[in-house]
Design a binder for these strands. Structure first.
Length: 877
RNA sequence: GGGCGCAUAGCUCAGUUGGUUCAGAGCACUUGGUUUACACCCAAGGGGUCGGGGGUUCGAAUCCCUCUGCGCCCA
């Protein structure tokens, strides 16, 4: 069955994906086999497939498909997360378009809209993964807001609270004024921005004197509650104990002393605004300063901003500067570059803000997770270089702010019964909360109506950090059969950008709840960048449409294209040309297949010697490639494993083996060769299948009719057999001979169809097993073994073997001599360097025996070659 | 400002404990080839002071120091 030009990738992909699904190959159930488990990094439920997803899901699919072929009970659990900030922001924006304001909705009403949105757009990304060929166990698909998933999150919150690890604190947090929520430190990006340093004059109370401070944020003067100087700074000794007057609002504030102030920076005088800067907060606490919060939750000014009330902070910055200037309080403005915290999601400039939030104590929790990765290797990061980054973050960890001022997510299970800060209980349900509240207050008249649940939701990562456990119901039901079998999982494949957000936290949670790491290996992929090294992003518009790529180059082609240049941990410079190379590889395999299907098989003819030896050689070559691939896979060098496969098929199988066994034009092929080659073709398909699942399944079924139990997807990895190293070595030699003949044919313009005679002085005593192959591949009519050099012949040498192609009259003796002299000169130079080493006693005594032996062999080879060259020269002149 | 990492062919990258196979691969490039699977092909070929400088060693892309240029993380 030939397919060639008729191969329609998209049709074939749909056909086989449906077939795989129909026969439930991707579904895993607990059995006696050893499990191999991967949990997907859950993408945002309303997201669409982008290059990063394609890359890491292709890698996961390669790993899981290979494991399946190797006989493991392979289980890849898919799912999505609710991405609270991103999704809530999208829903708010959509409602706004419809003229609905979130503030006018109740929590329940809003959540109804959010669920509608999720149901409408949710899961699109999972369907896109199917297009890519992802062999997930779809029956196990999970969503972080599924009832049983949420239940585990709540359970974990209550548990950690009861262990004293969760507390409520009034802290400076990162406030996103656009999303109107706090962010964790990890969700804040520090970006360099061009700003100004404003020099502002403050009057000293009861004096004509003034002092000057430098600030990047003049609008915060309304929140100033002190001026700070360094006690060692002699310039300001006269200010000690005095008070300053804040311009515009004319408030009187103390001048305090603290060594925290950098004498070098600005003017050496610092204005202190404890409500709006973390360092100022620290100074404020230390010196017991008043705290004045001047902002509303959208970062406009409140009544402390006086006549600026209601205006945005950046507008106020401009207007205040102008007013200060008019009042003569602005001394000067300098350009100043500083790093500004911005929201990862909304890009808004973060406002440090004091508020009540929920925190998770990290200090004790991280300990086992540090040990597991850095000491015990219970979790191995690939590549290893990320261990340093991990160490740095884990050893400098701060408490995790897990509350978000959002509705989309698990509502914090804290129930308030009074107005006091401590008037709450934490419980999995309101009924349990009521029991607790009654006993805490000794007030039996409390009812569920008197309880008010904290309005905030939990950080999404507080759901996903449980993911490898919760997808198997491991927190609800820790002793269940599946959890015991599939957990801990094997490999986790994700991007380095979420090493802290997610990976580290999963390890922490794993140890807290199971005393085990949730996975053994973490493979951190690179980020996908464009050719100009820019990160691919929607805003830059430099990310190709994933589905269009699949359409243009086939899913197999895109998979190969992505993997070809994706070494672990290195960023990937994406180039569509690579997909084209992938597509080309796919065509090459198809074309090789059609060749085999064009032959007529004749059972009566014997197997040619060239075919027999060629097949033996390829068997060893394939085995060698398998060993190499195992090594690459074990080190998560997926692109190297692919390259090994690529070269095996492209160069060794198509380039050499098929040429060796190919019958003459329109001649039949013997059945032994045909059957053996097809068996090897099947082995090739097995090896290629993890990379190109669709094409290989298609060809697999084209080779013969197979039952559903015989599908390639659930077949077996090739068996390990011994490698005949000697055969491989002899082939290398033969390949050099072939290359030598080809070079001469090219130089002398001898057409391939003109058969030539080749004679050899076999000084190397090379085995003649490959003679038949040499004769066939370079069209040699006779291959003679001789002992004396031939006159009027073109020559070339392989090691000390000399080859002759008789050529009447066409020999340029001078040129031949020149060629020989060149080779001689090079070889003599080489010999000198080798002998130099061998004469050096320190080398002979100091170097390992093996190394010295190899140098001696080099010496002997060089001497033999020189001998050959000299003899040839003598015979020519 | 603190920490980590990188620099090898035009591009993207391998190069394990310093030593056979060490200067490699793929792509790109140059030349030649198409009646006989594939031009998304085949064959042959060019191309590198291994970022600069110093050191250790019989021997350094590999180890040490230093300089330069990039990247990432954290503050």
């Amino acid at each position: 069955m030939a397919l060639g030009a008729t191969y329609n990738a998209s049709e074939i992909e749909d056909k086989w994906y449906a077939y795989w699904m129909e026969h439930n190959y991707f579904h895993s159930e607990v059995d006696e086999r050893e499990p191999y488990t991967i949990v997907i990094p859950p993408p945002n439920v309303t997201g669409v497939l982008h290059m990063g997803h394609m890359l890491n899901n292709t890698i996961q699919d390669v790993l899981i498909r290979r494991a399946r072929l190797q006989g493991y009970n392979a289980c890849w659990v898919p799912g999505t997360d609710h991405a609270s900030i991103a999704t809530e922001a999208k829903v708010v924006a959509k409602l706004k378009e419809q003229g609905i304001n979130k503030a006018d909705l109740t929590r329940e009403e809003f959540l109804k809209h959010a669920w509608e949105w999720t149901e409408e757009y949710g899961g699109v990304i999972l369907d896109q993964l199917k297009k890519l060929g992802a062999s997930c166990d779809w029956e196990r698909t999970k969503f972080t807001l599924d009832p049983e998933m949420s239940q585990q999150v709540i359970k974990s919150f209550v548990d950690l609270y009861n262990k004293g690890l969760i507390y409520r604190g009034y802290r400076m947090v990162n406030w996103d004024p656009v999303a109107k929520t706090t962010l964790s430190d990890e969700e804040v990006n520090h970006v360099e921005k061009q700003g100004n340093l404003y020099f502002i004059k403050y009057k000293i109370e009861g004096s004509k004197e003034t002092l000057t401070i430098a600030t990047t944020r003049p609008e915060t003067i309304f929140g100033d509650t002190a001026i700070c100087i360094n006690p060692n700074d002699e310039r300001f000794t006269h200010l000690k104990g005095k008070k300053a007057i804040v311009p515009i609002c004319n408030r009187v504030i103390p001048i305090i002393e603290d060594e925290y102030v950098d004498v070098e920076f600005g003017t050496g005088c610092l204005k202190v605004t404890p409500a709006h800067d973390e360092n100022d907060k620290m100074l404020g606490d230390k010196h017991k300063l008043e705290v004045i919060d001047i902002f509303n939750d959208d970062a406009s000014l409140n009544s402390f901003g006086l006549h600026y009330e209601g205006k945005d902070r950046f507008v106020v910055r401009k207007e205040v500067t102008k007013e200060l200037d008019e009042k003569g309080a602005l001394i000067k403005t300098e350009q100043h570059i500083n790093k500004v915290g911005t929201s990862e999601r909304t890009k808004a400039v973060i406002e440090p803000r004091l508020s009540d939030q929920w925190f998770l104590k990290m200090e004790e929790l991280v300990k086992p997770a540090i040990k597991a990765v850095l000491e015990d290797d219970d979790v191995v990061l690939h590549p290893k270089k990320f261990e340093n980054t991990y160490r740095h973050w884990m050893t400098n960890i701060r408490d995790w702010n897990i509350s978000r001022q959002l509705w989309w997510g698990q509502q914090i299970p804290a129930f308030f019964y009074g107005d006091g800060k401590e008037d709450f209980v934490v419980a999995e349900s309101i009924d349990e909360a009521l029991v607790l509240a009654k006993s805490k207050t000794n007030n039996n008249s409390l009812t569920t109506e008197s309880l008010r649940q904290d309005a905030d939701a939990l950080d999404t990562w507080f759901s996903s950090w449980l993911w490898p456990m919760s997808v198997f119901d491991g927190l609800n039901n820790p002793d269940n059969k599946e959890f015991n079998y599939y957990y801990p999982t094997n490999d986790l494949v994700t991007g380095p950008d979420i090493l802290f957000f997610w990976v580290a936290r999963m390890i922490i949670a794993g140890y807290e709840y199971t005393d085990k790491a949730p996975f053994k290996n973490v493979y951190l992929t690179g980020l996908v960048r464009d050719k100009q090294r820019r990160k691919m992003s929607k805003s830059l518009g430099n990310s190709p449409d994933a589905l269009k790529l699949i359409n243009d180059y086939s899913a197999d082609g895109v998979r190969v294209g992505l993997l070809l240049s994706a070494p672990a941990g290195n960023d990937l410079m994406f180039d569509e040309g690579l997909c084209n190379q992938g597509k080309g590889f796919s065509k090459k395999i198809q074309s090789a297949f059609s060749l085999t299907q064009m032959w007529n098989v004749d059972k009566t003819i014997p197997q040619p010697e060239s075919s027999r030896i060629g097949i033996e050689w390829y068997k060893s070559k394939l085995q060698k490639a398998l060993v190499e691939m195992d090594d690459h896979y074990s080190k998560y060098r997926i692109s190297d494993a692919l390259m090994t496969t690529y070269k095996l098929i492209q160069d060794e199988f198509c380039g050499w083996l098929l040429e060796i066994i190919k019958p003459a034009y329109q001649a039949p092929i013997d059945s032994k060769t045909y059957n053996e080659v097809m068996a090897l073709f099947e082995d090739n398909l097995r090896i290629v299948h993890p990379f190109m699942p669709f094409l290989t399944e298609e060809l697999w079924h084209n080779i013969e009719d197979r039952s559903p139990q015989e599908a390639l997807c659930i077949n077996t990895w090739p068996k390990v057999e011994p490698i005949d190293e000697n055969l491989l070595k002899n082939f290398e030699f033969a390949a050099e001979v072939i290359s030598g003949v080809r070079t001469i044919r090219k130089e002398k313009n001898i057409a391939f169809k003109d058969a030539i005679v080749l004679s050899v002085i076999n000084g190397e005593k090379v085995d003649s097993v490959f003679d038949a192959i040499i004769s066939k591949l370079v069209n040699i009519s006779e291959l003679n073994y001789i002992s004396e050099a031939l006159d009027s012949a073109l020559t070339f040498r392989v090691k000390s073997n000399e080859y002759f192609i008789p050529m009447e009259g066409a020999i340029d003796v001078e040129a031949e001599i020149e060629k020989l002299k060149e080779e001689l000169k090079y070889t003599e130079g080489f010999l000198r360097s080798v002998q130099g080493k061998l004469k050096n006693e320190k080398f002979v005594n100091g170097a390992p025996e093996q190394v010295v032996a190899s140098e001696r062999k080099k010496e002997a080879d060089a001497l033999a070659k020189i001998e050959t060259l000299k003899t040839s020269l003598v015979s020519l002149s």
